[in-house]
Design a protein around this nucleic acid. Sequence first.
DNA 1: CAGTGGTCTAGACCACTTC
DNA 2: AAGTGGTCTAGACCACTGT
Lengths: 256, 256
Amino acid sequence: MSEDLSDKPTQKDDGVGPRYARIQRILEARLRDGTYPIGSLMPTEVELSAEFDTSRFTVREALRNLTDSGFVERRQGLGTRVISTQPQVHYSQTFDSLQELFQVAVETYYVVLGSEVIALDKELAGVVGGKVGEVWTRVDGVRWTRPGGRPMAYIQSYVPQAFAHLVPQFQDYKGPFFNLLESNSVVPIDECEQEISAAPMPEAAQRQLGLTPGAIALQLLRRYRTSEGVLITSCNWHPAEQLSYKMRIKRNRGQS
Amino acid sequence: MSEDLSDKPTQKDDGVGPRYARIQRILEARLRDGTYPIGSLMPTEVELSAEFDTSRFTVREALRNLTDSGFVERRQGLGTRVISTQPQVHYSQTFDSLQELFQVAVETYYVVLGSEVIALDKELAGVVGGKVGEVWTRVDGVRWTRPGGRPMAYIQSYVPQAFAHLVPQFQDYKGPFFNLLESNSVVPIDECEQEISAAPMPEAAQRQLGLTPGAIALQLLRRYRTSEGVLITSCNWHPAEQLSYKMRIKRNRGQS
DNA sequence: CAGTGGTCTAGACCACTTC
DNA sequence: AAGTGGTCTAGACCACTGT
């Protein structure tokens, strides 16, 4: 039942496709039925080569795919460890760039209202992702659809001291500020945390956006992180009627 | 400057790491500087093997990584086509399951307040993702931390007619309803759309959640889709103070 | 130290695309 | 028919992990 593998490759093995694919399917079946339990080590490449009467190359190709599918992880000198017994279905939302994360900031205009150098207290440190006592600069501003147009959001940006010298460029910078900071940073942004909440519109924002008291805000807090720490944190208050945050999460791969 | 490649492998090529990695870096540099323009075909495996005085295997490993990084696409019989000149950095948020998408619904209790069979008008059709005139069932309910505990959210669920027979099971079902429906569906959920917005708490929700007039809600609208259409749409109103939606978006691969 | 996966060679045949 | 990438062999040495 498992011996036409010694036949010529890619011809009529039993199922279809190349040999590594058939071996992969067999191994996946064993993972599912518990032959290789989670946490255990799978047979070595040499053992599998012998079992399937094939070269290490072919076995490696099958194992590479199992790794990509999240079934196993492999470590030099250690072996192939089973980390999942299911095809590791997972869902993801992807953006080609952080700009896409939020569709604003393109063709919009930013007006600085003021800025202030502050020392982080405990609460603020938690909000911006810094440490208590660090010196940051807070920049207040409003983003408009166009000069003299409709105000879109009230924004407070928190910039660590190392990048405070860029704050004067905020006023004229086209595009999101994390871009400005990232292009002046030696390390790239590798993570963005976002917290979305509903809140009453702060009074200052209310005034600047021309809203009536009691207005509701969709609040977006974002921390852009590099390996060195937070690059910039911004908090946007959008009028609730004007903005909703839409996302689509897709299943990736995997059957069942 | 490019001729210590004929030396022994993985020893001291020039930079660091294995040979395929060095070749990969060289090729990436050429992609960036326009030596291989977008849309063109890169040199063939054999040509690259000759240039770098290495085996096809090693070149293939480099090209495989370029493919994974989104630089090129490869077609048998055709060649290696340049599709991007940038490391195709992209960011993604992933969930291992849709449950993780939202951390609620585990160890919580749901109480049905009532349900109603409705025909979709134009507005409702847009909201739930159905067609005008279709018959759906709307189920109103409240989710509690525990029986008699704290109310967490007011929920309206919209279920298409095909699954209306499952509505009586909502009351006792542990876990999110899309799970219940999916396990009674022949096709799996492959997509979830989510819209997050801020809004005044609806009056009915206000009453059920024991809130004062003027309360603010974080509203989450989710449509779970299969290949056959929407499986279930739910709209949750959470008290603004009780919930914020947090997400973390990570850079995937690629340097610079 | 022995054994693992990681890298690599120098061949080979096949499936596919283009001419 | 010629040339491409896809698959595969049977070797080899290396880097890393455990003992």
